[in-house]
Design a protein around this nucleic acid. Structure first.
Lengths: 397, 397
DNA sequence: GTGACTTGGTTGTGAATCGCAACTTTTGTA
DNA sequence: TACAAAAGTTGCGATTCACAACCAAGTCAC
């Protein structure tokens, strides 16, 4: 049996003209270079299936456009060494992530390398106008410190809250106390470069998808536990599942206990109201927990009431994961934030409970992972938002 | 703000060669003809954005391949009338749907027209071998009665149970008592044509997506209530969400009441164990309900215990829908089977409760619909499975 | 170290495909 | 009946890729 047609679009698209081929191939090459830091022309030939003469011409176009550079080949194999193609070191994107107590601005090169970052602490909740102004100043400073940057692909922002990537409006961010803010437009005006936004869970997932734990997967979901709740994001068939407005992915509002407390979403016993960092902290008191290193800071006190709370949260998390397993049939589930910490301390128990609670064939080969990028996750992901249009159409137009 | 890049693939694909353009455009044209029964060449030109000389050449290719025919133009507008292009009337697919008490075999033309069907009742649960043999006999009869059919695109089967479209294996169908059956392969051997399978919910959704309630939507989900349970299927970004093995879409196993009875999936209080046709039937007894016309057969007895049961099911269904709304942020939700009947009787209540229980921005413009194709749903959908490869690559290869 | 071998870049030619402009056909309208 | 509008048809040119022949640069065996 040959392989079946998976995920074919059901609604006809647009006609393909002759130039579409070129654009598609250039996009493909630039994306491969972006994903693989030092890929050789020979590897590009193999991975695309195109003729090597074609690859030569396409790479030359990208070099002319100052999007990539060719560097000396590595020897070691028989045959003529193939020059390596890397992203042009002068291309970068600006990541601008507002948070409750600071603004984090980063300069990220192609290939997902964070070149520089600035964290500007704020005494109080910032207004959108303030953050945009601060971001513009910080960007100017960063660019002044990096004269090698010849081109800014755009700006990206990870928003803690509901955001509409399509029109760049932040629908609501209770943490920032922002509602219906045309943030992308404001950023574009201040930074004089195209700006893109998305919610923080999608942005984190994007980074993991391109450079992290999701590199070789095409269907999986990501659950991220922050101090303020549980965010989710989904990759289905190799693309971020965004839904009609970009609000898709709220995996923290699965009902895990109908007797639980009322959630702000209107239902009772959502995962987010039951599995909380605050509850772990309370159970651990007076011991202090380190959010970024939860597993280790739990290690010494994992008994009694603390162990009980961990077990309770693992059980409820397993129920939610099992529920989503039936819906998505993913290749893997990636856990971040304090959920990653829980997974580190109770990996086998969690895996076993998901298996118990899910349809057998679905969890047979369940892969649970923790996220792998770490501190710069949201900077890399936000930059990725800005790189996307360039990757899709390298020579513009 | 220009429109943002939605659902771009994150993993680079293959290189596009010159012929890819042709294949893409032929596929696009044939798909448009398939979707629109009598489309004119001028409309094809407008919808694809291609030059009219190109459309002329492409249509000529499809005519040569006996995939479409050109029929007389309709006049009435100024200017030279444009010939209409329709699917060749001699192209069909065979739909072979096994069920517990019968096998339904249908001959479906391009454009989703059911040309003929046969229902072969069975005295007992059939074995896979039996159904395949019966399907082959029935197909021979149907083809004998339809000498105009010059080409069979393939065979498709809607399977009541878990199926893997990728390798054509039925993982498990408790209703049929079939486990790990290489059904597509068996059908291919018996019918001597490529065969494709998928679970019945996905097949139903496919029909609705191409010819029914989902025609103009790109993100929505479908919940179908049968006598034996609740099936689900999802369209995200214009494609069927299938997951790693094709098992995705089990929307019937959302927890709606964690105090409820144990479900066969391992959890308590799944939607499927709480919202059941059998419970409606019991509440209505001694009145008889008509499954296919539930709303009408409930009309006269919608009070007392029956009304209470309906209300209860509507409330739980609303909870499940609201939960999925947060995950998918769909443009619409389509209800089929007895869930469609519940919707007909309690449309406004259901809509209101979903709004109450979902995040506000998500349900603001909620569209609830019932499925629209009716009796032939699974025949049309199963045929669609078989047409897909032809639509993707009309001239073969 | 020398020559065979292998891998891969380079160049020129040919084929596929689409757009475009000019021309023709067919209809409706004044 | 003349004219305008819409759309099919035809020939030409541009773009893009594959292919084959050739050349370059490394490894490997002796």
């Amino acid at each position: 049996m040959d392989s079946r047609d998976y995920g074919r679009p059901l609604t006809p698209g647009r006609g393909s003209r002759n130039e579409s081929t070129r654009q598609h191939n250039l996009s493909l090459l630039l994306s491969l270079v972006h994903h693989h830091p030092q890929i050789s022309r020979a590897e590009l030939t193999r991975m695309t299936g195109l003729n090597r003469s074609t690859i030569g011409a396409l790479v030359a176009d990208l070099v002319d456009a100052r999007l990539v550079v060719e560097v000396a080949a590595l020897s070691g194999n028989v045959g003529r060494p193939s020059p390596r193609v890397t992203a042009h070191p002068g291309i970068a994107a600006v990541a601008v992530n507002p948070d409750v107590d600071a603004i984090i601005v980063g300069l990220v090169g192609m290939g997902g390398v964070v070149l520089d970052r600035k964290r500007i602490p704020l005494p109080e909740l910032p207004s959108p106008e303030q953050t945009v102004q601060i971001a513009a100043d910080a960007t100017r400073d960063l660019l002044a410190a990096h004269p090698e940057i010849i081109r800014i692909a755009g700006a990206g922002a990870a928003v803690p809250g509901l955001a509409r990537p399509l029109d760049g409006v932040i629908t609501r961010s209770p943490h920032l106390n922002w509602y219906e803010i045309p943030y992308a437009e404001m950023l574009e005006d201040a930074l004089q470069t195209p700006a893109y936004i998305d919610n923080d869970a999608n942005v984190g997932l994007l980074a993991e998808a391109v450079f992290g734990a999701g590199r070789n997967l095409s269907t999986y979901f990501y659950m991220n536990g922050s101090a303020s709740g549980i965010g989710g994001a989904i990759i289905a068939g190799g693309t971020v599942l965004r839904g009609a407005d970009g609000y898709a992915g709220e995996l923290g509002h699965t009902v895990v206990d109908s007797n639980g407390p009322l959630c702000h979403c209107g239902r009772h016993g959502c995962l987010e109201t039951e599995v909380q960092y605050a509850r772990l902290k309370d159970a651990a008191a007076p011991h202090e927990l380190v959010f970024g290193d939860l597993a280790n800071s739990l290690a010494d006190i994992d008994n009694g009431a603390v162990a009980e709370e961990i077990d309770r949260q693992v059980e409820l998390l397993a129920g939610a994961i099992a529920s989503h397993m039936s819906v998505f049939n993913p290749e893997a589930v990636i856990l971040g934030g304090f959920l990653g910490g829980l997974f580190e301390r109770r990996g086998e128990e969690l895996r076993q409970r998901v298996k118990d609670l899910a349809f057998a064939p679905l969890a047979d080969e369940l892969v649970l992972e923790r996220d792998s990028i770490g501190e710069d996750l949201l900077l890399v992901g936000a930059a990725e938002l800005a790189f996307a249009p360039l990757l899709d159409n390298p020579l513009g137009g």
